[in-house]
Simulated assay, not measured.
Amino acid sequence: MYKSYWGVNVKPFENTLDIKMFYASPMHEEALMRMLYVISERQGAAMLTGDYGSGKTILTRILATQLNSNQNKFVFITNPQLTSIEMIKEIARQVAVVDKLPTEKSDLLNILREVFKRNIEIGRNTVVVVDDAQLVKDNETLEELRLLLSLQPSDKFYVTLVLVGQTELREKINRIPQLKQRLAMQYHLDALTEQETGEYILHRLKVAGRTDPLFTNLAIKAIFDQTRGVPREINNVCNWALLAGFSKKLDTINKDVIENVVKEMV
């Protein structure tokens, strides 16, 4: 609705997994580098945590694009509330080329062991990413995921497990010492700083096609104060601010616009 008015080609503040819109803060760059290391060196398991809307999921998609698809097979588990057998079956469904999967867990594990082994033999890593892992129903499912790491015959793992979730995932993993000991990496994403919030907004506008300033400095400060630097919340406020500015035929988004938008969102 407001794209042509603000001189953008796409809506810059949609809450979608659009890799082009990704803003690489130093913190996100560090998390990405560490995960790349764990995978490339076959270190076993990694845990990435952060508050709701901090950019965890899109970071895992960025991770997949930065690794050669011929050398890395990614499995994305987007429904963490599967039972343990359902989880194993979903992983097998994504990696195994078979007409019909068996129903017995032991048979599924045998298939996974053979697939993981074959991938290693041809120089391919298998990476299992469990998103929103704090929602995994019980410890049994996490234990099954840990057992996947036990399929290796030597000092190099057949599979890399990446657990992604909100802060409470750390507490859940702390209660399972056998799994915690397998974590080669633990990293937590904090919210953006005020300066990074401004850079984030400018970056997304630039990717969308606008280089001229749009939000005033006081508006950016108001956005940061309201959102505490959480990317998803920044998107929400900025999106509604652009719509409000469009309806009022403004040239820029100032502090007053942000404050009014925030009042309407409460």
Rank of each mutant, 00 (worst) to 15 (best):
I253Y: 00
P177N: 02
I122M: 15
K249G: 08
L145C: 09
Q152W: 04
G198E: 11
A133P: 02
L63R: 00
N236P: 01
D225T: 03
E171W: 07
S84V: 02
V136C: 05
K100I: 04
E259A: 07
G7E: 07
L218W: 05
R175A: 14
D190G: 15
F74Q: 00
L183I: 06
E29P: 08
M185K: 05
V8K: 00
A184H: 03
A244Y: 10
F246R: 10
A46N: 02
R232E: 04
L243D: 03
K73E: 06
I77V: 09
A191W: 02
T141S: 12
I19P: 00
S54V: 07
V159R: 01
G165E: 02
E86G: 14
A31C: 14
N239E: 14
R124F: 09
V127I: 10
K20E: 01
L148Y: 05
T57W: 01
E29L: 15
T57N: 02
S247N: 14
L142K: 01
N174M: 13
L149H: 11
L135C: 06
E194G: 04
A219H: 06
T78R: 03
P213W: 06
F246Y: 15
T83D: 06
V75F: 07
E90T: 05
S54Y: 02
T216H: 09
E14S: 11
L179F: 13
Q134G: 08
V129S: 00
R182A: 08
S84L: 04
V261L: 09
H28Y: 15
A241W: 00
L109N: 13
L82Q: 04
K172M: 15
T83L: 05
V262H: 05
I223V: 14
K156P: 05
E199P: 11
V128Q: 01
G209R: 01
A219Q: 02
L243S: 06
V130T: 08
E104S: 11
F74Y: 01
D51N: 13
I111Q: 12
D132Y: 04
Y187V: 11
K248Y: 10
K56D: 00
E90V: 02
E143G: 10
N174K: 13
I39F: 07
D18W: 12
N79H: 09
P80L: 06
Q181C: 06
S84W: 04
I220L: 14
R34T: 11
T167H: 05
K11V: 11
G209M: 10
P12A: 15
D138A: 11
E194P: 10
R175E: 10
Y187T: 05
